[in-house]
């Protein structure tokens, strides 16, 4: 419950404050958000499976974000940034979908 509240508060604060994102971070923010979403869905599924561990969630959340940003950064340096970020988004999207399918089965039994 508190976690959900945290998410809501984060969205509200982000919308109200509208902080200026530093230009260095800017290209990585969308990928990082998608990676974090993947971690959140994975955590939700783990919770429904009854195997949720906060440490794992924290580590996976942070490592997902860092790795995604790193891949994009590397892609930029190699000159394939656009393609590589597309690939990252595709992979994360597939994972989000499979996690969402598991969650759906738990919640709706279907």
């Amino acid at each position: 419950m508190i976690a959900v509240l945290g998410l809501i508060v984060g969205v509200v604060v982000g919308l109200l404050v509208r902080p200026e994102v530093p230009a260095v971070v800017e290209p990585y923010l969308p990928i990082a958000v998608v990676a974090a979403l993947d971690a959140v869905f994975g955590g939700l599924r783990a919770m429904l499976d009854g195997i949720f561990v906060d440490k794992v969630f924290v580590v996976s959340f942070l490592s997902n974000v860092v790795v995604a940003a790193l891949i994009v950064f590397l892609g930029d340096k190699l000159g394939v940034g656009a393609q590589l970020s597309t690939g990252v988004v595709v992979v994360l999207g597939i994972r989000i979908f499979s996690n969402a399918a598991a969650i759906r089965r738990h919640v709706f039994r279907a």
């Binding site: 984060g10 923010l29 974090a36």
Partner: peptide, 15 residues
């Protein structure tokens, strides 16, 4: 902890 991380996620999402 999860609330903190989700707060960060929501912030990034909203931004």
């Amino acid at each position: 902890i999860v609330a903190l991380l989700l707060f960060v996620l929501g912030l990034g999402l909203a931004i």
